[in-house]
Simulated scan of single mutants.
Amino acid sequence: MKRVNSLQRFMNTRAGANCRYQPTCYEHAANCYTHAFLIVPAFVGMALLHRLSDDRWERITAWVYGMGLIALFLVSTVFHIISWKKSHMRSMEHCFHMCDRVVIYFFIAASYTPWLNLRELGPLAAHMRWFVWLMAAAGTIYVFNYHEKYKLVELAFYLTMGFFPALVVTSMSNTDGLYELAFGGFVYCLGVVFFKSDGVIPFAHAIWHVFVALAAAIHYYAIWKYLYRSSTLEDIRDV
C-alpha cells in the first residue's frame, strides 16, 4: 500500500478514452527538461552538417534535416512548458499540443531526407523524396481534423510513415549506415511502449523523450558519418 501511495506522488491515474493524461508536477518538469536540453545540440548538429556540405544540395539537405530536429525538441519543450503553466493559456496549450503532434510527421520526413537526397535512387524510389512530405501533410490534416479522437489511428499513422520509406532506403545499392538507421528505428519502437504508458509507469512520457533523443542521436551519427563525413574524406583523398 505504501508503494502505491509513493507512486501516486509522481504519477496520476490513467486517462479515460479520448481524454488526455494530466501529468504530475514532477512529470511536467521531466517532460520539459528532457527535450529542452537538446535544442542547442540540435542547432550545433545542423551547423556541423552545413559546414561539411560540399555543394548547395547538401547544404539544403542539412538545413531541412537540422530544422526538423530543432523543431521537434523546440515545439515539444514549448508545449510542455505551456501545459505545465496552463492556468491562463488553455487555447494556446491546445494549439501547441496539435503543433507537437504535427511536428512529429515533419520530423520523420526530415529524418529520411538526407538518405533520399544524398544517395543514388532508382526512378521509382526517387518519388519517395516528395512522397514523405506528402505523408507529413496528410498527417497534419488528420491532426487538425481529428486531434485526440482516435489515438490508436494516430499512432498507426506515425508508425506507417516511419517504416514505409524504409522500404526504399533499404533497397539502395550503397547500404552503408543502414544498420544504424534500423537500430535507431528499433529504439523509437521501444520508446512507443512508454509513449502509451502514461498513468501506468511513472515519468513514462519523459522516458519516451529519452528514447526519442537516443534514436535521433543514432540517426544523426549515421548521417554525419556516411553521408557527410565520408564524402569529405573522399574529397581529401582525391587531393
Rank of each mutant, 00 (worst) to 15 (best):
F183G: 10
A15Y: 03
I104G: 02
H35S: 06
L190V: 00
N5T: 04
G184T: 04
A222N: 13
V239T: 10
T24N: 12
K196G: 05
P202G: 03
V153R: 11
G16W: 02
I82F: 08
Y179P: 04
R90H: 13
T113D: 08
T13L: 15
I236M: 14
D238I: 12
A137M: 08
H205K: 11
S197A: 14
Y226P: 07
L233D: 15
D198C: 00
M11L: 13
R129M: 09
C19M: 13
L116E: 03
I82N: 02
M1K: 08
I223W: 02
F163P: 02
F37D: 00
F194Q: 04
Y21E: 11
V187G: 08
H80P: 10
M11N: 04
A71I: 02
M135D: 09
K196W: 09
T61S: 12
M128V: 07
W57D: 13
V40E: 06
I141E: 00
T170F: 15
M98Q: 15
A204H: 09
A222T: 09
V64L: 06
S230V: 04
D198K: 07
I223P: 06
H97W: 07
G45T: 03
R119Q: 10
F43R: 00
A109Y: 05
V78P: 02
Q22H: 13
E154V: 01
A30M: 11
V103E: 05
W208K: 04
F73I: 00
L227H: 12
V75H: 01
V40A: 10
F107G: 03
M67F: 13
R90Q: 15
A156Y: 05
V132L: 11
P114L: 08
R229G: 00
A166G: 06
V64H: 01
